[in-house]
Amino acid sequence: MLELRLVQGSLLKKVLEAIRELVTDANFDCSGTGFSLQAMDSSHVALVALLLRAEGFEHYRCDRNLSMGMNLNNMAKMLRCAGNDDIITIKADDGSDTVTFMFESPKQDKIADFEMKLMDIDSEHLGIPDSEYQAIVRMPSAEFMRICKDLSSIGDTVIISVTKEGVKFSTSGEIGSANIVCRQNQTVDKPEEATVIEMQEPVSLTFALRYMNSFTKASSLSDQVTISLSSELPVVVEYKIAEMGYIRFYLAPKIEE
């Protein structure tokens, strides 16, 4: 028996919108720790890891570890039927091949049940080691989204370089080239507008903008994004989900042949 009640149901709606472009089918894993997902895109270039901790739910019952295979487009179709202020409850019985999403309006005057068929998904689960990164950039998520969008109208790849001067996003294409430098800025009144750069050593890596743009669909979950870079590792683009957990996107770099 599984029963997870999320008062801020809009968070789940936003999570789905953030990942459904990248991943079509995925297993949602439910355990005592929380509700989680790990999935790769079809080319195995990017990986998404989601965690919604048990403590973040108003009610969290998970009698035994359960893995539920869902088609994310179908799940998004159902969650779009929930109001932004609705409370969402996810329910499943042990051994059942369906999951139920229950939507309650804030005034409790409307209650809806949507039952969705589960699917068997053969997914690879990768071990992600804890790593030290050469540079960690924290910046406003809206700014990062704007940069990725702007650069993708010029080129297909972005070179992200961190030096003591700041973080530079560069691209080039048939029509020309572009460089955007963001400097550290902690003097702003609002912490969500800060740009903070922690650099152990300079690093420069190249990534496909198509994936970066897809990651920025998570921007509505968090005012800030954290970009962790090391020359020997995939970049981590992390959006914290208030009080509950995170959504992390890993993207393998492009390497000179």
Binding site: V45, L47, I128, T157, P234, P253, K254, E256, E257
Partner: peptide, 14 residues
Amino acid sequence: QCIQKKITEYFSKN
């Protein structure tokens, strides 16, 4: 010319 690496080249199966 750049080649696109895969995630599975960095992280191994659990």
